[in-house]
């Protein structure tokens, strides 16, 4: 009896600890993928749910049969073992049925994949460049003078990481200069890296693309709703891999135009002041001092 109880008492300990952990009143119980704010991300979400339902149903059926067998054919209930060990019809059946299910899964997956590859003509192109350990964003323009470029680094202070101060709501998900893009406008991201491989991931856009040195990768997003969206670097890139978040501020198109013009103005004004340090890339400037 004691042996039977032990697992349950352990479970009880786990759940008590859970209660203690949750008393911090954090929104810490997210279970599922985010639906996101692009057509693609929402389609990915539906695809994910479809797959989840299919495997759950298969799981319930297979495990159901197995547990029924374990219950029915136990020696303690006097079951006598049978000797059959082959049934070609059955074996063909459970090779063919999974194939049919797989085709059912592959068709919608292919449709979504094709949609991801069918890229719209983008008016705005942003170059995303991964560094150990921050991101650089460059808005490509017609002339080099009009280009706007800045670094985006973690804004969470060191003492919060060290636990010397209470952690803020967006602990490790806050940057000094967020990427700003317009809503309802196709935006093209050209992703590359400067040292090791990084991966630029914004779950709400359904985009995860590796940033590989010497290679440019392309991703597209048409964000449906203005807001602030956060992500993290998704490829191990060294010591501070956990500390290079991505924050994207999505504005209404007019607000975005205004913002971009301001950045260009700032850059021009700053050049007159001669107060902006050039970095190695030559045209990299921070727009918020």
């Amino acid at each position: 009896m004691l042996k039977r109880l032990r697992p349950f008492s352990l479970l009880a300990v786990v759940f008590t600890a859970l209660m203690v952990a949750s008393s911090g009143a954090l929104a810490g119980w997210e279970l599922n993928m985010r639906q996101g704010v692009t057509e693609i991300s929402q389609e990915i979400y539906s695809l994910h749910m479809l797959m989840l339902y299919i495997v759950c149903i298969i799981g319930v059926l297979v495990f159901g049969v197995m547990f029924w067998a374990m219950f029915k054919y136990r020696k303690s209930k006097g079951a006598k073992p049978a000797t059959w060990h082959e049934n070609t019809r059955l074996e063909v059946l459970w090779t063919v049925i999974p194939l049919v299910i797989l085709i059912g899964m592959a068709v919608p997956a292919t449709v979504t994949l094709a949609k991801i590859y069918d890229t719209p003509d983008a008016d705005i192109t942003v170059k995303v460049n991964g560094y150990q350990w921050r991101w650089e964003y460059t808005y490509l323009a017609d002339t080099p003078e009009e280009e706007v470029s800045f670094f985006s680094s973690l804004a969470t202070p060191r003492f919060e990481i060290r636990g010397e101060a209470p952690r803020s709501e967006f602990y490790l998900l806050d940057v000094d200069n967020p990427l700003v893009i317009p809503a309802n406008t196709p935006v093209k991201f050209l992703i590359t890296a400067n040292d090791v491989i990084h991966s630029w991931w914004v779950p709400d856009f359904g985009i995860k693309k590796d940033a590989v040195p010497g290679i440019i990768n392309e991703s597209h997003a048409t964000v449906l709703e203005p807001g602030t969206y956060r992500g993290m670097c998704a490829e191990l890139c060294g010591r501070d891999h956990a500390y290079m978040p991505i924050v994207v501020e999505v504005l209404e198109p007019e607000e975005f135009e205004q913002w971009l013009a301001e950045q260009r103005g700032d850059v021009a004004a700053a050049e007159q002041d001669d107060s902006v340090a050039l970095t190695s890339a030559g045209q990299v400037r921070s727009f918020i001092q």
């Binding site: 049969v65 197995m66 374990m70 054919y73 079951a79 049978a82 060990h85």
Partner: peptide
Amino acid sequence: VATMIGGSMT
């Protein structure tokens, strides 16, 4: 699973 069905399990 089919091996279990019809067996005499312990």
